[in-house]
C-alpha cells in the first residue's frame, strides 16, 4: 500500500519567492548603488572644468585618475598596496585564529567563560590605539608592532562573535546530535560548526573592517611604505590627489576583501532563512 499524504498530492510549490522580489535582471541590480557616487563624480569634474572651483584641495576625478595611473605606472601603487595588504593579512590571520579559538572555548565552557571573559571584556574597553606607544616600546617600530596592533583590532569582534554564536546554538539541535550518538568531534563538525557559520562570517567581516582601520593607524605611526604612508606623504608634501588616490585604493581593496569572505562563505550559507536575503547581490 502506498500512502500519499494530502499535502504532497496537492503539490505545494516551494519555489524561492525571494528571487522574484526585483523585476530587474541580475546584472543590473548592483549598478543601482553606483548612481549616486558616479553622478557626484561627474558633477565635480565639470564644476572644476567650467571654473566654478579650482579643485586644488579637492581634485576632480580626472586628476585623481591621472595620479592613480602615474603611481601604478611606476609600480609605486602596487608596492604600497602590497605592503598594506600583507600587514592586514598577517594581523587578520593572527587575530582571527586567536579570536576563533578563545571565543569557541569561552562560548563552550562556562568555567572558561568565567575565568577569561572578564579579562577580555576589560581589555576590549581600552581603545586599541592606546596600545600603540606600548607596542612600539615592546616590539619596535617595524612590522611586529604594526601587525600586533591590527591583530588586536581584529581579535575582539571575532572573539565576541564566535563566543556569542557558540553560546546561542539551539540546545534542541545539539540534542539531535546526542540522539544520534555523535562524538565530541563529530558534534563540533556536524552540528556546532554549521550552526555558528552565519554568525562567524559576520564576525570575520567586522574583524576585517577593523583590520583595515587599524592598518592605517599602524602605518601612521611610522612606515616607509604602505597606503597609509601614501596618505601621510600626500599630506606632508601637499598632494591631495595622492591622498584621495590612496583612500580610493583602500575603498577598493577593502571592499574586494569583504567580497572575498562573503563569496567564499556563500555556498555554505544557501540554507539560511532570513529577512535580508533579497537585499544582497
Amino acid at each position: 500500500m502506498s500512502f500519499v499524504p494530502m499535502s504532497a498530492a496537492l503539490g505545494t510549490s516551494a519555489a524561492d519567492p525571494v528571487k522574484r522580489r526585483s523585476a530587474l535582471p541580475r546584472y543590473v541590480t548592483p549598478l543601482i548603488g553606483l548612481i549616486i557616487p558616479v553622478t557626484a563624480a561627474i558633477v565635480w569634474e565639470f564644476a572644476v572644468r567650467w571654473g566654478w572651483s579650482d579643485g586644488r584641495l579637492v581634485p576632480p576625478p580626472s586628476v585623481i585618475y591621472a595620479t592613480f595611473a602615474e603611481l601604478a605606472a611606476t609600480g609605486e601603487l602596487q608596492r604600497h598596496a602590497l605592503a598594506t595588504v600583507a600587514r592586514v593579512a598577517a594581523g587578520f590571520g593572527v587575530g582571527v585564529a586567536a579570536g576563533t579559538v578563545l571565543g569557541a572555548l569561552t562560548g563552550y565552557s562556562v568555567t572558561l567563560f568565567r575565568l577569561l571573559d572578564p579579562t577580555f571584556q576589560a581589555l576590549r574597553a581600552i581603545p586599541s590605539i592606546a596600545w600603540v606607544p606600548l607596542f612600539i616600546l615592546w616590539l619596535g617600530i617595524f612590522e611586529a608592532s604594526k601587525i600586533t596592533l591590527i591583530a588586536v583590532g581584529v581579535f575582539f569582534p571575532v572573539y565576541l562573535g564566535v563566543m556569542g554564536a557558540v553560546m546561542s546554538v539551539d540546545r534542541k539541535v545539539v540534542e539531535v546530535g546526542r540522539a544520534f550518538r555523535l562524538s565530541g568531534f563529530q558534534m563540533v563538525r556536524r552540528i556546532l560548526l554549521p550552526a555558528v557559520l552565519p554568525a562567524y562570517v559576520i564576525a570575520l567581516r567586522s574583524g576585517l573592517g577593523l583590520g583595515w582601520m587599524f592598518v592605517v593607524a599602524a602605518e601612521f605611526m611610522g612606515a616607509s611604505e604602505g597606503l597609509g604612508f601614501l596618505l601621510v606623504d600626500g599630506q606632508q608634501l601637499g598632494k591631495p590627489a595622492q591622498i584621495v588616490a590612496a583612500i580610493v585604493a583602500f575603498a577598493v581593496i577593502g571592499k574586494l576583501t569583504d567580497w572575498l569572505i562573503v563569496g567564499l562563505a556563500a555556498p555554505f550559507l544557501r540554507w539560511e532563512d532570513r529577512f535580508g536575503r533579497g537585499a544582497e547581490r
Partner: peptide, 12 residues
C-alpha cells in the same frame, strides 16, 4: 530512535 515535538531538522 526519537521524534520530538518540533521537527528539529538541521537547517543547513
Amino acid at each position: 530512535g526519537i521524534v520530538f515535538q518540533e521537527p528539529r531538522l538541521l537547517p543547513w
